[in-house]
């Protein structure tokens, strides 16, 4: 109420509202012009830069936000991949172990087979050696016997054979050789 009373008393004294309010309309116009000029200047030089900065900052914040989302996603994906690799590695390890076991068992059975074959071969060679020894002995005995037969024949024929049977022998030999 005091304000309105003051305003009524001021206007009633001069009859001018602006004057009553203490506002110099020239100064106001100048201030308005100055203000507009200021706004224009600000709008031309300050606000674009400011807005640009703000936009940039907003963009950076947005980017950072996106990046963090992306990083999170990548981290999740890496974790998944890691788990998948681990699974694969576990499977391969199982395979390798199984293969190694299989190979070891094959090696054992191959070695057993080889040993068996070697043993058989040694036994066969021993039998062959004995066979050869027997054959050699047989040959030697045969040779000795023939030698003795020839020697005995030589002795006997030398003493027993005479001219007449010899001539018959010669005649037969000539007849057979014709």
């Amino acid at each position: 109420m005091t304000f309105y009373t003051t305003v009524a008393e001021a206007t009633s004294g001069s009859g001018d509202l602006l004057s009553a309010l203490g506002i110099n309309w020239q100064l106001l116009i100048i201030q308005i012009v100055a203000f507009l000029l200021l706004v224009a200047l600000l709008g031309r030089f300050v606000y674009p830069w400011l807005m640009k900065s703000v936009d940039q900052r907003q963009k950076d914040i947005e980017d950072a936000k996106n990046a963090s989302i992306e990083a999170q996603r990548a981290a999740q994906q890496s974790q998944k991949d890691g788990e998948a690799l681990l699974d694969e590695a576990r499977r391969e390890a199982t395979d390798i172990v199984a293969t190694a076991k299989q190979e070891a068992s094959d090696i054992v059975s191959t070695s057993e087979e080889k040993s068996r074959l070697v043993a058989e071969r040694i036994a066969k060679e021993a039998r062959d050696d004995i066979g050869r020894d027997v054959e050699a002995a047989r040959k030697q005995l045969r040779a000795e016997t023939l030698e003795l037969v020839a020697l005995a024949t030589e002795k006997v024929v030398g003493k027993v054979h005479t001219k007449k049977p010899d001539e018959a022998l010669i005649a037969e030999a000539l007849k057979e050789s014709k």
Partner: peptide, 13 residues
């Protein structure tokens, strides 16, 4: 030969 040859044997030869 081991013995000497008779005439007949020589003839045969």
């Amino acid at each position: 030969t081991a013995f000497s040859l008779s005439a007949e044997t020589k003839k045969h030869i």
